[in-house]
Amino acid sequence: MTGPLPVTLPPLRGEVLSSWISRHADFYGVTPLTMLRHGLPDATSLEAIDFSLTNAQANRIAGMFGVSPQLVRSLSFAGAPKAAHRFIAKSPMQRCGRCTQTDVSPPPILRSELQGWRITCSHCGEPYQDKTTSDGERTLEPYRAAARRGETLLNNHAERRVETWLPPLEIARLLLMRRIPWPPPRDGDLWRYRLLGAIVPDFDAILARETSFPHSPKHPILPLCIRPALLAGVAIIDRAGPPMLKMLHGHMMGENRKRFVMATDHLVSPAIEWGPPQQFQLI
């Protein structure tokens, strides 16, 4: 390390580490990677530092900026569960019309703008905005309260490592697995039916109007306009408990069913203690 910087900029509330480093790079007239290498000479990627920051790296970056290692770590996603990384985008997906700062150049990137489980601003609570267009928001309005509960569950799991009977991030990924409805659709329409549709039936209606759906357990970040469906599904299953997993088994076939059973069977076996899922739990 070549020593602490003579002038440093304070991180903005909720700013992600790579954004903070990039703003310093702009201030000093160098590339972001060059700025990072001022403290970490062997660094090869600015983006990687957000997800794979080690304690040793945090200490060196802290020395460069004259802050505590704890502050540096709080700006990264390194402490989040690995499952959360699939829900974090590489570039901002959403903005808050109230909190977005337009008087800072380059504009900062906030961690919540990258998080694929958020539908509201983490600072003011206003609904997030993005560039997607769909009538899904109107269709999913009855699920809004459940979606907010799901957002809280996922955020607590990803940001605070709060555990429930089944990790909310895992529930969200499972709900994007394909299911087989009855009667079975044409082969060309099988992609339209996800396990989520068995919990939130209006999701089937939304996909019936789509021409593609490139989302899956491996790529679980949904467009903001239909994301409330997934969050609501998480909240509904979390409240209903393990018996609902047994019910969902019946909506799957083949390899998908095997994968689902392997992921949930340890919870289904003791589900008898919970009793069957009740209708009031599903709304």
Rank of each mutant, 00 (worst) to 15 (best):
I236M: 10
T264L: 01
M252G: 11
P220G: 05
R192V: 04
G188K: 03
R239T: 04
M262W: 09
E255S: 06
P214R: 07
G250K: 05
F260R: 12
I272S: 15
M247H: 07
A232D: 04
P270Y: 03
P243M: 01
H251F: 08
R257Y: 04
R259F: 13
P223N: 01
R209T: 09
A263Y: 08
P228Q: 03
M262C: 07
R227N: 06
H266F: 09
A229Q: 04
L248M: 02
N256T: 14
S269M: 13
V268A: 01
A271W: 03
K218D: 05
D265S: 07
D189P: 07
D204T: 11
R227C: 04
R192E: 06
L195G: 00
A232W: 06
K218G: 13
M262K: 15
E255N: 15
G188L: 10
H249T: 06
A198S: 06
V261T: 13
P228E: 04
P184N: 15
G188N: 10
P242Y: 11
F213K: 00
I206H: 10
R194D: 08
P185E: 04
A271E: 12
H251L: 09
D238W: 06
P242V: 03
M252I: 08
V261R: 12
R259N: 07
T211H: 12
I221W: 08
I236V: 03
V268E: 03
L195H: 00
D265I: 13
D189I: 05
R259W: 05
G233I: 11
G241M: 09
R209Q: 15
A235E: 01
G197L: 05
P183G: 02
P228W: 15
I236S: 06
M244Y: 04
D202L: 14
V261L: 15
H215R: 15
D238H: 08
I226E: 14
C225V: 11
P270L: 04
L195P: 00
P242S: 10
P228V: 03
A240E: 14
